[in-house]
Design a protein around this nucleic acid. Sequence first.
DNA 1: TCCATGCCATATCTAGAACATATCAAGATC
DNA 2: GATCTTGATATGTTCTAGATATGGCATGGA
Lengths: 297, 297
Amino acid sequence: MELRHLRYFRAVAEAGHITRAAERLGIQQPPLSLQIKALENELGVQLLRRLPRGVELTEAGAAFYEDTCAILTDADRAVSRVRRVARGEAGQIAVGYSSTVISHPAVKSAIRACRGQAPEVAVSLVEDGSYELAGAIAAHRLDAAFIRTEPEEFPELRFIELLQEPLLLAVPAEEGFASAGPVSLARAAALPLVLYRRSAGPKLYDRIIAAFAACGTPPRIIQEAPGANAALNLVAAGMGSTLVPQSLCAAHPEAVRYHPLAADPPLTAPVLFALRRSETSPAVRRFVSTVREVAGK
Amino acid sequence: MELRHLRYFRAVAEAGHITRAAERLGIQQPPLSLQIKALENELGVQLLRRLPRGVELTEAGAAFYEDTCAILTDADRAVSRVRRVARGEAGQIAVGYSSTVISHPAVKSAIRACRGQAPEVAVSLVEDGSYELAGAIAAHRLDAAFIRTEPEEFPELRFIELLQEPLLLAVPAEEGFASAGPVSLARAAALPLVLYRRSAGPKLYDRIIAAFAACGTPPRIIQEAPGANAALNLVAAGMGSTLVPQSLCAAHPEAVRYHPLAADPPLTAPVLFALRRSETSPAVRRFVSTVREVAGK
DNA sequence: TCCATGCCATATCTAGAACATATCAAGATC
DNA sequence: GATCTTGATATGTTCTAGATATGGCATGGA
């Protein structure tokens, strides 16, 4: 049995005439009669009652007509679906993010843009640390990720810098400076600092330490936190101050005050986009190009 | 696109090798390669990545593989279903019954036997009067019916007498005879009678009247009821006595006493099975033969 | 009663497609 | 670098879908 038999049978069932169905199908009547008979033979079932005028479905034929229509529409749907998947308009992608990037408006709008452009792509989001995310991408558990720090150990991955955002000084509200204006590194160094631990992002960590050192005011680090969000929580609790990427400034609006940092060169934290160099999935490639487009990179 | 392409693609996807899939399919490798390529061309989508060892599915190929399997199993199911329908093992039938036959054990067991033999046949049951049921069968709204009276006006229908059951005398409990034994027609004639109206079943009605007349004791009919069940309700209310088919003797066990009728020849009511002479549906034909088998007719 | 009409079935032919055989090419493995 | 594995290509053969021509049968009108 082939789809041709089903297409022919459907046409005959709907026309009620073999001759008329043949016209609609663009073939002649005898081959259509033969094909229908071949189908009946293979099934071992009479599908049509031949009447003096036209044909009508038997009980079995009526049941088979239902299934025939379902199969043919499923086949059509499968064809259009595979084409959409090949164009990256359907499918599924798994995207990771580290906790300090998801609040950045550019990241949010990138993900929103993807959903808008390819609503049939199911995007699943996973939060984890930069290193873990990179490993998951290399192991094909994820397809891409927004991270802060570029791990060195993954030559098969590519990292695209989407943006640099300034670091802010986050101070407990009750100890805040009078003005909301910029604060110099020297003044910041006078505050007791909570900082995330170096292993969570050594490059930025070293840049911060070096910046303080450059203006002759080594910072006073009184507490280490596992990450920037944890450090912010400690600030909110009044334990000290810290430096966080600007996009976190919506956190703890009551308990924490955020001040721009006056530093030269400015202290900034990057948002990186990680993906496999040899990516084949059309949905992922489409996602990647949308993200780069939105970020202008 | 034909089912052949889908069968071939499924085999290749599952084997991961074109050559090995060709073996399983019982064809040679070159035509299989060509068929797969033809499928890819028609879809305009690359389904396979050709590797040094075998092939693997692309994203689009994986999506298409899912749909392919669904379509192929649907096609197989459609084939087996149409065969079951043709054998009368699946489908749907609409059966009618008049109110006084459904309680007969032979009717119940006939319907139960059909459900047991062809559980995939959906049986819908409709209650109505004998004339209405016959009309519905002739109009193809029903397929068959269990009735009491054979209407004359339907030459296209066949009526099979499944059984004859004796009539019982139903008497209000407080007026019952002392013994549970048979009651002669003459004694019954002394009671005030409730009888269903003649139009509901003229043949049996006339037989009853004639039987009374034959022993010289015309009955005293004090009330007419639309049918036997309604008459029984009146008996239960103490309005009088009536004659009902034996299978109704489970009704009103507290309020009504049932006595066999001593009459020669015995007064009996038939159960008829009505169906179209030109029935084509295999499910209905199967139902009919099961009913006749169970009834021994 | 006869003929015209409409529609499906049968017989036969042809062109195209599916499949087989033989061979090649590319990458992997030793 | 030789060999093996595996898919691609080239070419011939078989089978079958479809075309053409014709027959059969029932219906409807003259």
